[in-house]
């Protein structure tokens, strides 16, 4: 493939977080003024229906107004999403011993990639999440006792309290 763009896809529960909230987080997570390196590496919102399209345009207008500068982030319809190779998935998790425990729970590759537990583990291991939800989640991720200890130590070793800019 020479015409693809690297993206990530999130399945979310709209009763917990809205698409607008995710858009807000997206805008906070990149520099919308920077020119894209290439088609492969560019900031982009790929909408899947007209509601998402309208909300994406609305959020872009707000950012443009707030920054008072042109915004290079593109908004386009999603045509097709291809899963990246396995080594790209839950990248941080894969370099830890916790991965073995997740592989036992999910011998099937598709299930492992789409698991909430693996996504959340990867997030915590990367320093994202809230300290108050971590203390609950740590027992819900299917880890052994030693796995839970490894996770808690890894999170503590990050040196900064868990924070996530998600709307509360």
């Amino acid at each position: 493939m020479g015409d693809h763009t690297e993206t990530f896809q999130i399945d979310f529960d709209p009763t917990i977080i809205s698409y607008m909230d995710l858009l807000q987080l997206f805008w906070q997570s990149h520099n919308p003024k920077r020119k894209a390196w290439s088609r492969q590496y560019r900031a982009i919102i790929l909408y899947q229906n007209e509601i998402q399209h309208e909300q994406a345009l609305q959020s872009k207008t707000q950012v443009k107004t707030a920054l008072n500068t042109p915004v290079t982030t593109d908004i386009l319809p999603l045509v097709k999403f291809y899963l990246a190779e396995g080594y790209h998935q839950k990248y941080r998790l894969q370099s830890t011993p916790l991965m073995e425990e997740m592989r036992i729970a999910y011998p099937n590759n598709q299930e492992w990639i789409h698991s909430t537990a693996t996504a959340r583990l990867n997030g915590y291991l990367s320093g994202y999440g809230l300290a108050e939800t971590f203390s609950v989640d740590v027992t819900q991720l299917g880890l052994s006792g030693s796995g839970e200890s490894i996770l808690a130590k890894s999170v503590a070793m990050l040196g900064t309290p868990l924070t996530c800019p998600l709307p509360r």
């Binding site: 990530f8 990149h30 390196w37 819900q140």
Partner: peptide, 30 residues
């Protein structure tokens, strides 16, 4: 009655309840 074997694994508790309605969002960060 059919006879089959199946490997049983236990899903993490957090994955045992799936919301009825999920939506999908797709982004690229450059």
């Amino acid at each position: 009655m059919s006879l089959h074997t199946q490997t049983q694994t236990t899903k993490p508790p957090i994955d045992q309840t799936v919301p009825l309605h999920l939506e999908t969002a797709t982004f690229g960060l450059g």
